[in-house]
Design a protein around this nucleic acid. Structure first.
Lengths: 252, 252
DNA sequence: CGCGGTTTTGAGAATCCTCAAAACCAGTGG
DNA sequence: CCACTGGTTTTGAGGATTCTCAAAACCGCG
């Protein structure tokens, strides 16, 4: 296995100075809620690129919010076939399944160096008791994840290879843009074609040929081991996807 | 469209005499929680087979728990391609997405006559304020739905047609069995092959040929417009699925 | 320069799809 | 009781998509 949670537990970002919260994407919080979150947060965890954050079958005592970096959730079959379920980006709450239902049913791996806020499972009941608004937010985030999975399932089940690839890239682009991650002009997504293949349910070879078509149409460029998005509108149109809504969302 | 919510709003089952709650599958409730649920419940809705319970794009003011019957959640592409996301069975909470996030992002259709408990969106904040335990249960159910979607996505993305079909039937069988729905000796699932095709992401023709293989091996029998499950263990083994856990779950 | 990981290409094979038609079956109306 | 109808299941055949196998090209890194 690539590597386990090796990470320092410093605390560079107090919640009051959270770099994410000011973004227009996120809903505003009441100060008392913010104060609670601040005590709820136990520290930060830095995870190396390629390391596994959470492992299927483990019984995690923690819950995390992504502060920065990219990752992905996936499941494996016995013979090694891998399905990537979704990507994990700043503001996402991860480990909820394990925390709420017991055992983790999927794994999460870092696609880039990840910085996580660490929360403790044990304090969750207290959160639910004292801060119904935050409890509602957690449900909201779970419903949002469900919605993204619905879309992914629709894509893998019913779209052609070309549509799937377009959808995936447009989808990731939309999420990253909302977070203000497109600082470089053509935004770059830090994934390999193997990741895309395992997300779309296609073989590596056919994925490559499909991406090649997108390249030849000028919609993307594959460079420096990542995908540069040249024409997100065209990708979205090609996939027949209606886009993310523009509702603001909570951040826990 | 086949038909809209035509249903009487009688109230045959007071919560105190809920036919589901006594099942060993469900966690026990505190009496005050039960009392609240009872006031939370606004009535019952009977939905005809084939009718659409919730429509994608609508802004539902209601939230439902299935009392009896079968249904399915699905999404459509513009050109009519359909992907079934999951099946809906007694004890499932539906409409949460629409209630929590605004617009419904999927539709739900009845596979058999459905009986639903009706709750109101407006009272949800009160539930979160007064009954953190119930709030947690709702999150739990959302996480459970997410888990089922993860499994379905793994299946559609990475399993062969034969494995997918086996998995789906074993999965539905396991859920129904937990609910005590297998009163008839070989349990019958009330779906058409078109439903299976749209769940697995396969064409109708190929689905038929795949099911035929399962029949010839004696794992299922297709009779009376439904699927009789003859050998659930073999199906589960063939699909390489580890089964549902045996944790008890909440019922809201 | 050599190495491991990633991308690219080619070729043949398996899976899965579409088109088309027949068989089957329950319900309806004559 | 029978013919008709619409929905569902079944089968065949040819074609498109996607897969596996295999090898080469590429690329950053020690």
């Amino acid at each position: 296995m690539a590597g386990q949670n090796e990470g320092s537990s410093t605390r560079r970002y107090p919640c009051e100075k959270c770099p994410l919260r000011p973004l227009p994407l996120f809903r505003e919080f009441e100060s008392q809620e913010l104060a609670f979150i601040s005590t709820f947060k136990k520290g930060e965890l830095a995870v190396d690129k390629g390391a596994t954050v959470l492992v299927e079958g483990s019984h995690s005592a923690h819950l995390y919010t992504v502060l920065s970096g990219w990752g992905f959730r996936y499941k494996l079959l016995d013979d090694g076939r891998r399905q990537i379920l979704n990507y994990v980006m700043p503001g996402d709450l991860i480990g909820l399944q394990g925390t709420v239902m017991g055992e983790m049913q999927h794994s999460i791996e870092a696609l880039s160096p990840l910085l996580l806020c660490v929360f403790e499972r044990e304090q969750l009941p207290e959160l639910y008791r004292k801060h119904p608004g935050l409890a509602f937010d957690i449900t909201w985030l779970a419903a949002r994840e469900e919605r993204m999975l619905d879309e992914n399932l629709l894509s893998v089940g019913r779209r052609s290879a070309l549509e799937r690839a377009s959808y995936l890239i447009a989808f990731i682009f939309a999420r990253a843009t909302g977070l203000g991650l497109n600082d470089s002009k053509p935004m770059q997504i830090p994934i390999t074609q193997q990741h895309i293949a395992d997300t779309l349910g296609l073989s590596l070879v056919h994925t490559n040929k499909t991406l090649r078509k997108l390249s030849s149409r000028g919609l993307i460029v594959w460079r420096d081991g990542g995908c540069e998005v040249m024409d997100p509108e065209a990708l979205q149109k090609l996939s027949g996807w209606s886009g993310l809504g523009d509702t603001r969302r909570p951040l826990v």
